[in-house]
């Protein structure tokens, strides 16, 4: 077996874990795009805020003498991150997007970029005052590592318990979200608003409330992803949201923007392709792979894998 083939299983495995994180963030992009036709550029930074909230909670809980069980730690971090970022997302919508509903796309984009800058430096400011530094190491939650020996592979496949937890948590959240959107009244209202805002309003749906709810849920998912990401990659910085945000957006596009299962599929696909592509043509071009996928999908298949065709000129 050639050495590239030897590494393939591990690359795919690692790609899956990253992919699930992308997927969780992508959901936020896709939901907001669904209801507002807006690329929420600040979403990557909402994710970053989630990572910081999660990290701070972990720091606080591990600082004392008797450590909690890792499950409780993780739950606390994820819930706190989701709660804070949900409110943050709704706040961003209220302040930066709602006044601009009728404005041209570019204005919204600039407003979003403004929010993004603001969040990055605000987090930095807060952490600088609080801890005197803003690049924070993250306390370890699950230290367990499994090594699986596979016949024919020279090296055991390595997988962390933490990775498994990230994947399982992602799947749980996705299932929850799908049920919420498909089965509950607010969820159905959300779909109605995404379909046709005016008609939804005529049917007595409070469109503003639904849009706020969309931001609440999408941002909360992004924030939870931030906390999970922090436990997985052990370092958080205020500027980490941009690259990951772009990749998650790519994932949303690949799956078909506006489509929740699509975002999930796109995230996993992107994560794996990026890892495998980087493994074969060199990590130097790992990001080129991600961006090339973005460009190719948009140009050749603008509706994504599962999405509906975007109406032109409407």
């Amino acid at each position: 077996m050639s050495s590239t083939l030897q590494t393939l299983p591990q690359l795919v495995l690692d790609g899956l874990v990253v992919g699930f994180v992308y997927a969780l963030i992508a959901v936020g992009y896709t939901m907001v795009y669904g209801v507002l036709k807006l690329i929420n550029f600040a979403h990557g930074d909402v994710f970053m805020v989630g990572a910081f909230v999660g990290t701070e909670v972990l720091r606080a809980l591990t600082a004392g003498g008797r450590p909690l069980s890792p499950w409780a730690l993780l739950l606390a971090a994820v819930v706190a991150a989701a709660a804070v970022t949900a409110l943050l997302g709704a706040g961003i919508e209220r302040v930066a997007y709602r006044p601009l509903r009728q404005a041209p796309t570019l204005i919204l984009l600039v407003s979003a970029i403004g929010v993004s800058f603001l969040l990055e430096d605000l987090v930095r400011l807060v952490e600088s005052i609080h801890l005197g530094k803003f690049v924070l190491p993250v306390p370890t939650v699950f230290a367990t590592v499994y090594r699986i020996h596979v016949a024919g592979l020279q090296n055991p496949l390595t997988i962390r318990l933490n990775s498994i937890v990230v994947v399982v948590a992602s799947i749980l959240m996705m299932v929850g979200l799908t049920l919420f959107v498909g089965r509950t009244r607010p969820g159905k209202a959300m779909r109605a608003v995404a379909e046709d805002r005016t008609t939804a309003a005529l049917q007595g749906i409070d469109v503003n409330a639904i849009i706020a709810l969309t931001f609440l849920v999408g941002s909360g998912m992004g924030g939870a992803a931030g906390a999970l990401f922090a436990t997985q990659y052990t370092l958080v910085t205020p500027y980490m949201g941009f690259d990951i945000g772009i990749k998650a957006f790519t994932a949303a596009v690949v799956g078909g923007i506006g489509n929740i299962p699509g975002a999930f599929l796109g995230g996993i696909l992107l994560g794996v392709l990026e890892q495998v592509g980087g493994g074969f043509i060199g990590t130097k071009f790992q990001n080129v792979v991600a961006f090339a996928i973005l460009v190719l999908v948009l140009v050749l298949l603008p509706s994504g894998l599962l999405g509906e065709r975007v109406q032109e000129g409407a």
């Binding site: 030897q6 591990q10 690692d14 980490m240 690259d243 493994g279 060199g282 130097k284 990001n287």
Partner: peptide, 21 residues
């Protein structure tokens, strides 16, 4: 020999290769 962007957080790709060679 590999190059990996300074803002990258995931080094598993490079590590997999190191593990191999």
């Amino acid at each position: 020999s590999q190059s990996i962007d300074k803002s990258e957080t995931d080094y598993s790709n490079v590590l997999t290769q190191i593990q191999q060679v």
